[in-house]
Design a protein around this nucleic acid. Structure first.
Length: 503
RNA sequence: GGCCCUGUAGCUCAGUGGUAAGAGCACCCGGCUCAUAACCGGCGAGACGCAGGUUCGAAUCCUGCCAGGGCUACCA
């Protein structure tokens, strides 16, 4: 089974921030999870580089657009390894192969009769040489930059017949209940659709930094169409000697933020249908992370959280874990460094890290590091039954927080198990030797299976634990409690996984 | 203007018709010693935003109101 997942591509005009990290991490977790399940997985991310803002910024800084894009794309690319995010390809919309493919697809849309020449009317600023959109215009129809009065001007544009897809999109929403998630986002998309679709302009005449319109070289495509197509074009050239389109299209999940919902749930499937291509199976809209005060993060409020500040202090695993644990995935929620520190200490260090430490230490101390071929406790095993299926079901529903919570309940369960069984007392009683074998083997197996399940969330730490347990297999088939009970397992003690910060 | 979301314990939240409303964190008390002074147990007199309504029964459905946030088509 193939699984193709994407993040939205980052607009290179801005700086990488926590929102980019959040989306990339969530997507990476799902990609890793599917790789564990041996699904044929492809994970795409990248940068969106065309359009007027980039051209303007480049000019203002004395660069050619392409040079400016090179400079900034590098920043986004460099963020990923800091987060433990490992995509299969990083697309840039200025890639010549992308541009070529965009032209191919949109030419098809044109040939299929979904493009016509029309007139775009808007408020125009002669000083900016640019159209302004309604919501940026000042009182009295003035330019937000020059504060001069704007004039209504017309520009000849090519339009995309979005309205022609009204009923097809309605059918798509009706037939594919999972097309947009969570339900809140789906409602918003359906409400928009119910309002009736209008055609949208597809090209720009006054701009050169974009993909040239093949049937009229005096236009470039409006950046959104160029950008959306990245999900499709990347497959055609991500691998030098293979076109992956057949293998992965249509996409399984497009992970996006709620600000671009309309483009991904309405324009995008319509565009694909117009080109005779299959629309994606799903679009999932994650929430926005807010400042610790519950307000939108902003420089002026100083309530932002820099992902690199977190990784520098606590590591990439901690950031990944924190973001998916702290805020219900799909909802907005507040985050701050104090909350990171709390989760790090209480959960990663005390719950999981310490569980690993005490388990390894007891096996080393009481059984000379060897718990191979010992039976596990059936009562404990019962409490782990079905866990891998529960977790994978949650992740299939893109409920990352829910899946993680299911796992964490068992992390807590294992710490309680230690207290209930009191291995240190069993160790003093020779008659309890068999029982101690069982208890230690059960702990070994419990930590091992949970580490397999946690691997997508905290890949570095779990890899260390699994290696220390002598069972490095991260395949999902190994996630079930009991899978490795009979295997040879010699453990090694390791330093604290999530060391406490010095006071 | 229209549409939508949120409002549950000190904090952050889960809980969408049914036994005495839950979790984590924080606080306090107790236990243990394998472990990163970690872990385990105990401890909540909460008007489930306010006011009505539907129902045998509502945090959970409906109406109105209050407070906060979002969307309302071509900025990405």
């Amino acid at each position: 089974m193939s699984f193709y997942i994407t993040t939205s591509i980052s607009y290179v005009n801005g700086q990488p921030h926590l929102g980019h990290a959040y989306e990339a991490i969530a997507t990476d977790v799902l990609a890793r999870h599917h790789r564990q399940r041996s699904d044929d997985t492809f994970f795409l991310t990248g940068t969106d580089e065309h359009g007027e803002p980039v051209a303007d910024a480049a000019k203002a800084n004395g660069y050619e657009p392409r040079e400016w894009a090179d400079l900034n794309a590098e920043k986004f690319k460099a963020l990923l390894p800091e987060l433990g995010v490992e995509p299969d390809f990083f697309i840039r919309t200025s890639d010549p192969q992308h541009e070529q493919k965009v032209q191919d697809v949109l030419q098809r849309v044109y040939d299929n009769g979904y493009v016509y020449k029309g007139t775009y009317t808007g408020w125009y600023c002669p000083r900016c040489a640019d159209f302004k959109v309604e919501n940026e215009i000042l009182e009295g129809n003035r330019c937000p930059i020059h504060e001069i009065e704007l004039t209504k001007e017309n520009e000849e544009n090519y339009f995309f017949k979005l309205s022609a897809f009204q009923s097809q999109l309605e059918a798509l929403f009706a037939e594919n209940q999972g097309f947009v998630g969570p339900p809140r986002a789906r409602n918003e998309a359906e409400a928009f659709l119910a309002g009736g679709l209008q055609d949208v302009s597809l090209t720009r005449a006054k701009l050169t930094w974009g993909v040239q319109v093949p049937w009229d070289h005096s236009h470039v495509f409006y950046v959104w169409f160029d950008a959306l197509l990245n999900y499709y074009t990347a497959l055609s050239y991500a691998r030098a000697n293979a076109d992956l389109t057949e293998r992965y299209w249509p996409a399984s999940v497009h992970m996006i933020g709620k600000d671009i919902l309309k483009f991904h749930t309405i324009y995008w499937p319509a565009l694909l249908l117009a080109a005779g291509l299959e629309p994606p199976k799903g679009v999932f809209v994650h929430g926005f992370l807010q400042g610790a005060d519950g307000r939108k993060m902003s420089k002026s409020l100083g309530n932002g959280l820099d992902p690199l500040d977190v990784t520098e202090r606590f590591g990439a695993d901690a950031l990944r874990f924190f973001l998916l644990r702290e805020v219900q995935f799909g909802s907005d929620g507040p985050v701050g460094m104090d909350a990171v520190a709390n989760r790090y200490s209480a959960e990663l260090a005390n719950d999981y890290g310490n569980l690993a430490s005490r388990t390894l230490a007891m096996i080393a101390r009481y059984r000379d590091s060897d718990v191979s071929s010992r039976a596990t406790d059936p009562e404990l095993a019962a409490e782990f039954t079905g866990l891998p299926a529960t977790v994978s079901a949650a992740l299939d529903a893109v409920d990352l927080t829910g899946g993680l919570d299911q796992i964490w309940q068992r992390v807590r369960r294992l710490n309680r198990y230690v207290e209930e069984q009191r291995p240190w007392e069993l160790a003093r009683d020779e008659a309890a030797a068999a029982r101690l074998d069982t208890v230690l083997a059960s702990l070994h197996e419990g930590v091992r299976s949970l580490s397999v399940l946690l691997y997508p969330f905290i890949p570095a730490a779990t890899a260390k634990v699994l290696a220390a347990l002598g069972t490095p297999d991260t395949d999902y088939s190994a996630a079930a409690f009991g899978t490795h009970a009979a295997a040879t397992a010699r453990v090694e003690k390791i330093p604290p996984l999530f060391p406490k910060e010095p006071d």
